[in-house]
């Protein structure tokens, strides 16, 4: 099949950027979307044109490195699928495809479709962990975890940190990402000691990184390649309200900086 691509080209962070039109000829239906771009890039290279920069690594939908907008939808038209797992059989002859990077203040564009998502790492640094140093763990079966709790924790822990939720959110909020980690750890007994401190820290960090606020509309859930449910945001809100109510001075002092 033959497709027309309109790709966001931006040389670097300070370049204003623009859409550029490319023709993709003889696209094989069994190709993945990124393989289609690989072929385009090889053609551009041989013509002496700068290939399109995009991030990808594992190409099996788990590392979370890839992702951009295809016709205004994060990761493209197939639900529950990262762009590296999206195959060209989803498209048809003559389709016009608009490719744009994730857009958010917190995710500045580095080049073309590549953005800086280090803000997600900072949210994790603000509390997305259990403070247990190597060597100090009790036996794995010492604390029993009910199967439903473990399953719910796993549902939330499946987040790959790709940023599609932020990209799809009209407010560029990081609520689904933050809520997923908070919920993962809050469901497990091991996560309890730091539960409320964690939510205060992570929520504050998301604000400092200039993510927007959630308006409960559900675009994030719809584009999430791992189908993380909106419930995790409610869970975060619940823990935040409780944590704010019970907040102690020492926590405030620690979090105030």
């Amino acid at each position: 099949m033959n497709l027309t691509l309109h790709i966001w080209r931006q040389k670097n962070a300070s370049d204003p950027g623009r859409m550029v039109r490319y023709e993709a000829k003889n696209v094989n239906a069994d190709m993945s979307f990124l393989e289609m771009l690989d072929v385009l890039n090889e053609e551009l290279t041989l013509k002496g044109e700068d290939p399109v920069a995009f991030d990808s690594d594992c190409r099996e939908g788990i590392c979370g490195m890839c992702g951009f907008m295809i016709n205004g939808v994060a990761h493209g038209p197939q639900r529950g699928t990262t762009v590296c797992q999206l195959h060209m059989r989803r498209f048809k002859e003559g389709d016009q495809l608009h490719l744009e990077p994730w857009r958010a203040r917190a995710f500045p564009v580095i080049k073309d479709l590549v953005v800086d998502r280090s803000a997600f790492d900072r949210i994790i640094q603000a509390g997305g962990f259990i403070s247990v140093s190597t060597g100090s763990a009790p036996d794995g079966n010492a604390i029993l975890v009910p199967k439903p709790a473990a399953d719910l924790a796993m549902d939330a822990a499946a987040c790959i940190g790709c940023g599609a939720c932020v990209a799809a959110c009209p407010n560029a909020a990081a609520a689904l990402f933050t809520g997923a980690k908070i919920t993962h750890l809050a469901k497990l007994p091991q996560g309890q000691p730091e539960r409320y401190q964690r939510v205060l820290g992570m929520v504050a960090q998301a604000r400092q990184d200039l993510f927007g606020s959630c308006t409960n509309i559900g675009e994030c859930e719809a584009v999430c390649p791992k189908a993380i449910p909106l419930d995790v945001i409610a869970g975060m809100n619940r823990d935040f309200i409780k944590a704010s109510w019970e907040r102690r001075e020492e926590v405030i002092e620690k979090g105030a900086g």
């Binding site: 205004g72 608009h98 559900g218």
Partner: peptide, 10 residues
């Protein structure tokens, strides 16, 4: 803002 943005769930 995006050049093209679709709402798919909201």
């Amino acid at each position: 803002s995006y050049v093209k943005k679709e709402a798919i769930a909201s």
